[in-house]
Nucleic acid binder design. Structure first.
Lengths: 345, 345
DNA sequence: AAATTCTCGGAGAACGTTTTCCGGCGGTAG
DNA sequence: CTACCGCCGGAAAACGTTCTCCGAGAATTT
């Protein structure tokens, strides 16, 4: 049926297998007349090259492994989509691996992908520390680009958003709209996004209020934690709740509303990532948009560079600038009687 | 480095390539002593089988293509996750293809996957009609299972939730909680989920109110449409807004709140799918949960059955029972003065 | 005109498996 | 003792490419 091979085309066109391969792959110049004959025969028989055989011989599968902690994390789908498009545009296929947020399965998945001879790996590490070993081992075998989160210095190429810049945008916006008592709900742990966003808050918030860097609560990147953290921080009556990601912000928003707080009049809430949920929250969430398409394009670029330059060079780390998306949750503040004379324009 | 082949193991263990292959693959019984020697040598050298060569010879790549309309559709990530796990558990890898909701790219992606000799395809069709041709062609070449949405009768095996049953659960719940004037916001078009949910509403709602089947608005499966549809239906003062999916419901909820409607007191809102957003909406959304893990398991089962039974048998269609998740958005109704004497227990 | 290069095509060796076929060896039956 | 069968192991043929040689003829140089 669909079993047309080079041999068949060769037979039908009256020349050798080698010639057919050369014509179809364009590997080496071939007489114009012969080329036409071959192409005609191939077309007529409906020849489809066998990628497996090609991969075996040329030691390249044209396949990239994409490993991520949890596809259900709402930030990832758009990233996956962009990556898939970028890679498909280069004629590469994407082998997907979901790690269940567990470093052990992550290591297993990486191993499985390497066994399938992927040409390269795109990887969002589960954990800065616990992923390190497996990632380093993999990076020694194929080009590997880390996405969104780092994994220790010098392990592999990496591309991520500039978290510090994003947090700075948020704080500048809050300052410009008259907020003076920010607090921060972040994530504990050593994950690079957690650390960078946290420290950026600490160093940036001091400009608004010397006490601000101290007003923070650290948990994880979940809605539940956002809710819980509000209970801890709200008694101090901040006029802005800066959250380390949108999920936390969604939880915070929910809890604040339950507590009867007026958002954004009494207190502003901001997120990070601009997941689809952000625009749907009520009030819609002011947040920092990651340049997802650029991240994907840059990752693809790093991969092909690694392929040509050889895998030995120094590690490149790319940081892309985020964009502030102002929505209702940080809108006009009302004058607050109790804690200070602040109001907005 | 990682270039240990069967030949090396054969050399190191002093027997032939064939024997090594047999021991490691367990294809044929082999002397106990020899087997031990071979296994030891393989272990010592760190032999990793080459999947590409294996695929070439055995005409099976151990790879399944997963084609979906848009990974960013919030219902898909959890499904993808379950499918990935189910397939990985069988030792198969998942080749992901995102179609951008476009039948043309869908056809292209299917072609690319077939060219890469996937063993089978898991496919969520973009469109009932426009996907038909490409799907049928693909189904002729490899085992293919349709997921979530159908694609015309007799085209391929398919597994989906029982949409009619889900809608019936919703209507029964609304009836039980005293709602008597439901309306429906659905999606136009021929997609099976759209049609089934719509007709299930039409036939089920008549029991509550003879006029109910007529109160419906059809658009697409988006938040925007949910918002817009409320503007059309709200003037009729329904006491329940039944939505064809959670995105529509989220939009409806948002708009109803803007209009000052009391949910759930004055009007209940229900969704379908139970995407993560549903639990986060305010009020939390009553919806129909799809048995995602079961869908994935069933799809995997159908695939392996196709593989063994040969690809010629009749098409199996599996429908799984959904589950009603009652949350705040359909909670206790208040007595409504205007339109009737209805109240709840 | 002879020598050299250039161009185009073919034969065949890889790539790393799986699998078919075959041969030797021990045991059992005739 | 011979014949046959079952078991285990090896040699080698696939699988469908790509790519390296090689050679024959044409084109170019000396």
């Amino acid at each position: 049926m669909a079993e047309v091979t080079l041999k068949d085309v060769a037979l039908a066109s009256g020349c050798s297998i080698a010639t057919v391969s050369r014509v179809l792959a364009g590997t080496r110049p071939v007489g114009a007349e012969t080329a036409r004959t071959v192409r005609a025969a191939a077309e007529r028989l409906g020849y489809r090259p066998n990628h497996v055989a090609r991969a075996l011989r040329s030691r390249s599968t044209g396949t990239v492994g994409l490993v991520l902690p949890q596809i259900t994390n709402p930030f990832f789908p758009t990233l996956v989509r962009e990556l898939e498009h970028a890679l498909h545009a280069e004629g590469r296929a994407v082998l997907l691996a979901d790690c269940d947020d567990d470093p052990a399965t992550e290591a297993a998945r990486i191993g499985a992908l390497l066994a399938r001879q992927v040409d390269a790996l795109l990887l969002i590490p589960v954990d800065e520390r616990h992923s390190r070993e497996a990632v380093a081992a993999a990076a020694a075998q194929v080009p590997l680009v880390l996405l969104d989160r780092g994994c220790g210095p010098g392990v592999a190429d990496s591309v991520a958003v500039d978290n510090a810049a994003g947090m700075a945008l948020v704080l500048a916006h809050l300052a410009a709209t008259g907020r003076r008592r920010p607090c921060f709900i972040g994530a504990a742990g050593t994950a690079s996004a957690a650390v960078e966003r946290r420290t950026a808050y600490e160093s940036g918030a001091a400009a608004l209020d010397p006490a601000a860097p101290g007003r923070l609560a650290l948990g994880d990147f979940s809605v539940e934690w956002g809710r819980a953290a509000v209970d801890r921080l709200w008694p101090a009556r901040p006029d802005a709740v800066v959250c380390a990601n949108d999920l936390i912000a969604a939880g915070a928003l929910q809890r604040l509303r339950q507590l009867g707080a007026d958002v954004p009049g009494e207190v502003a809430v901001t997120g990070f990532d601009d997941i689809p949920l952000a625009g749907l929250a009520d009030p819609a969430l002011t947040t920092v948009r990651q340049p997802v398409a650029d991240l994907a394009a840059e990752a693809a670029r790093l991969l092909s560079r690694r392929r040509t330059d050889g895998s030995s060079g120094p590690c490149h780390t790319v940081r892309l600038a985020p964009e502030l998306v102002v929505r209702a949750s940080s809108g006009t503040a009302v004058a607050v009687a109790a804690d200070g004379p602040f109001r907005t324009s």
